[in-house]
Design a protein around this nucleic acid. Structure first.
Lengths: 263, 263
DNA sequence: GTTGACGTATCATATTATGATACATATAAT
DNA sequence: ATTATATGTATCATAATATGATACGTCAAC
């Protein structure tokens, strides 16, 4: 169990991070026992680590129920992240303009391994909760943003991704057939934008345009989600797409010349 | 230096957190040496802890410059936070409606010690970068949101806060005179809303309405920032305030009955 | 009143982190 | 080119620090 690259690896710190990761949408507050169970750590270790995190202000503790919860520090980390990501500063004002212009929800997504992660969201319409908050990770293959990015990758890399990257059925209409996804991405490569329908939620259509980095690969995408009840694919392409692409294209140049992403 | 409540305090974990906190708006990416300097840890410790954080996916490392940066995991923490904070789910749809209705930037702030922290921001106009991202902490006394909340506190607590809570001069017009702040808060207590002008940025006016918890104290506020170039106090009160208060009042009831905040 | 679940505190042991030192690599200066 | 300086990386003996079994308190349900 200590087979990590030993000497410059601090186990206690890693265990502490396990505690932090135990919190997610299904586990919003946890008792000591639940924490121990979810992390696989024993009771004493959990007690010490949780207490440390509490003392250091990373976990709030309800004085009566004694349950732990993420603290405001978790939001401050997002704040620090925003400053560190050069994309955000470039994109934010343009995204605001776009969302005001369209009157529809606009998102900024980055590639993160085989998932995409939403780094900025500007909701204009009432939607389900998860669609309004940042930091959500979704399988890249099932999102318009992910497909738009993938479409800019070299042929072999793209094929490998389509074959191996994960897909989770979120709705009955989530595309599980990888051949169909390949077609969708091929279209995106041809057209310069991607469309997805009902992948994450029924009757939702997503359109996305890639943001291209210094190496010609997309590392992010501007995305727009609309309801299939009020929009058709044709009207999306005629009314939304041009502005969406203008925005993505306006952001890209800053990253064509220099380097872009981390590790 | 080990005078913390010893036995159930894991020093290595606390040190790791020090590294995370070393990143902020002025320090977006750090070399090993800079990390050591900013945390006060020695080179070896920094090396091991940073490596651990990197291996565990909390820090990205630029393969060429070898500098560390916050990873996407920092955004996922915000995601987990959002689910854990019962206020967000209640407030978000109503805030979206409000921002669409007003066409002006709407914020949700929570009290966090002697500061406020922005937990949600819906920018409608182009503003300075820091105003568009969540997780920012500001001295409560210098913000309309903080004053609106403070106005709901018991008299003695309020006075103590006005005397002792920190104030940072952000602009030449930031109010440093605590007597004037006391007046502003007294007005807020009388009127049920607070106004601030030019505290964080010149020619910016903030209006805020408190969200009241189960104990009658505000723990959050809905806030709106507009430009003094296009708005007057009178028009704010007549055009913005009613809708702002409706929104805050619509959110409060869910927290009047039950308990609200953590520790 | 009894039981069980859960949070809290204690302590001897050796596993684990420590930090001084030496090595490697890159960048700047001479 | 050659040297110097800074910065990242690797090693290792030492003891300090985390470990986890156990025992104690406390609260709620039965």
């Amino acid at each position: 169990m200590k087979t990590k690259q030993d000497t410059l690896y601090v186990g206690s710190l890693a265990k502490g991070l396990r505690l932090l990761r135990a919190f997610d949408e299904g586990h919003t507050d946890l008792s000591l026992g639940e924490l121990a169970q979810r992390t696989g750590l024993d009771k004493s270790a959990t007690q010490r680590l949780a207490n440390t995190l509490h003392v250091e202000g990373m976990l709030d503790k309800d004085p009566v129920t004694r349950r732990f919860r993420p603290s405001h520090a978790w939001l401050q980390m997002a704040y620090a992240y925003y400053w560190s990501d050069p994309l955000i500063g470039q994109a934010m004002p343009k995204l605001i303009n776009l969302s005001q212009d369209l009157g529809e929800t606009v998102n900024l997504a980055e590639i993160s391994g085989d998932h995409i992660i939403y780094v900025s969201r500007l909701p204009c319409k009432r939607t389900y909760f998860a669609a309004t908050i940042i930091g959500r990770r979704l399988p890249a293959l099932s999102t318009s943003g992910g497909r738009a990015m993938l479409a800019t990758f070299p042929e072999d890399e793209r094929r490998h991704a389509i074959e191996t990257w994960p897909i989770t059925p979120f709705t009955p209409s989530t595309t599980l057939d990888r051949a169909k996804i390949a077609t969708s991405i091929a279209e995106a490569a041809r057209d310069g934008f991607a469309v997805s329908t009902g992948q994450m939620i029924l009757n939702e259509i997503g359109v996305a345009s890639p943001i291209i980095g210094h190496d010609g690969r997309a590392f992010a995408a501007v995305q727009c989600s609309v309801s299939a009840h009020t929009w058709t694919r044709e009207r999306i392409v005629s009314d939304i797409l041009p502005k969406l692409q203008d925005t993505a294209n306006a952001i890209s140049p800053a990253f064509r010349a220099h380097r872009a992403g981390g590790a």
